[in-house]
Structures are given as C-alpha cells and as structure tokens.
Amino acid sequence: MIPAPFDYVAPSTVDDAVRALADAGEDAKVLAGGQSLLPVLRVRLAAPTKIIDLGKIAELRGVREEGDHLVIGSMTTHYDVQRDSLIAEHAALLARATDTVADPQVRHRGTFGGSIAHADPAGDLLAPALALDCEMVIQGMDGRRTVAAADFFEDFFTTSLAPDEILVEVRVPKHTGWPAHYEKFNRVAQAWSMVAVAATVRTDGDTIAEARVALTNMSAVPVRARGVEEALVGQPATAEAIRAAAEHAAEGTNPTVDANADVEYRQHLARVLTGRAISAAMAG
C-alpha cells in the first residue's frame, strides 16, 4: 500500500524543525527513522498532512560526554548506539537493549530518540532509559526543557512532548563499567516484546552495591522495579538472593491482556525474567 498524500519538509536545523512543526499544527508528524511511522502511513492508520523529517539535522546525531553524563542525539541510529564506545563503557544497558530492537535493516534506519518518543509500551529502549534515570531534552518554540524519564512516559504512545516539541537529545547518567543485560521474551524473533527486563548492577566485591531494573510492556509505560532494586542492594551476589529479589518484579505493574499473555502470565514472566536478567548481567 501507499501512504496518503502529505507535504514534506526536511529542515537542516532544530530551530527550523521546531518552527515548521509549530506552523504545521495538529496534523503534522515528525519523522525520525521512520521505521514505525512509515508502516503506519502505508496501511493508512495515520494520514498526517505534513511530515517534518529530522534526517537532515546533523546536530541531532551522535554521542558525546558531558561530565558525568553521556548525551545521545535523538537521531542517532540504533546501529550506531550498538557500536558506540562511549555507550559501551558508560551505559552498556542501552547497547544491550538496542541489540534486540527489530532487525538489522530497521536498526540501520531507526533512531534512539524516535523509539523513545514513539513510546510504544513494548518498545525496548523505554525501560533501559527509565532504569538509567535518563533525562529527555526537549525543544519547542519556547526553548529547551528537560524531563526525567520517570515523568516523560505518560501513557500508551503518549509522552510529555507537546505537539510542537521535539525530543533533541537524551542525557544518560554514566554507569561506567556496570555490567548489563536486557532479557527479552517474544514468540518469534520479529515479534514485539511480550515482557522484557532491563537490568544493570554494580557490585562491590561479592556484594551488590547498586541495581537498576526496569520492565518493558508491563504497564502502559515502562515500570521501574524499585522493589527488586531495594531487595538486591547489600545482598551477596548469589542466585538465591537474586531469586528472592526478583519475586518483587511484578509489584505495581498493570499489564495488558492479548492473545500471547494474560495478566497472571505476564507477571509471572516478569519475575522469572528479572531473575535471569540480573544473573546474566552479573555474569557479564
């Protein structure tokens, strides 16, 4: 199928993009990597009158260091995230989750910021962003503002981005050297996550010093597994301690029901996969 007709602009600066978005009004869509948007346009589930393509804005691509943060441009592709040496060192969790996103072709086009702004509850980068306490840097006509990941995701496919705002970069607190794992559970390789768990830990000798755990697709928005984190801290890094902590994984979750999983099964999976994610992370 072919998308319905639309106008197209590809501004070369963020300022121009924001202006174009403000001018275009409600029926405009921002095009990042397009790997979710274009299929939706093709089957005509959406028919925006204007597409604002961020693809020509060089300043939105790339990863840089700023003190104790990494700053990831929203248009940095999944492929580049997977291979970025700064991310590997300071935010390995993002790279491991990105490894599981869609397929190689999609990872060549799809972008880090696009996935986060799309806010699909089964998207694989939301939970890692939440687990790492990322901050979303947003630009609109009134300038820039920063929103914590915990406040950014509001509902299914809904974020705190206003219609005339663009996600320009994501600030990631460095978790230097923290081993990480993203445990994804789906029925076939191409399918979305039924449940997935993002986990990264810092050990101090044989003791778990800190842990960051968040869940994909266990609610309308990604869920931070605080109960698990608290149960892990100060514990010896043993299978038993991990298992006990993982029992808290489903607390506060409110998963949807579909043909693949009901609530009970999803919550069960959350517990099992959390244990596996933490163990795998610690195994390096």
Binding site: Y8, A10, L31, G34, Q35, L38, P39, R42, I51, D53, G55, Y79, P104, Q105, V106, H108, R109
Partner: peptide, 18 residues
C-alpha cells in the same frame, strides 16, 4: 531490502525523498 549509502534498509520503509 536494498543498500542505502552502504547499509541495508527496507526500501518500503524509506521515502524516496529521504
């Protein structure tokens, strides 16, 4: 699937203008 600037992409998910 084709190669766009040296990388594989699904050409159904790229606009010609891109």
């Amino acid at each position: 699937t084709v190669h766009l600037d040296g990388h594989s992409v699904k050409s159904c998910s790229v606009l010609a203008v891109q």
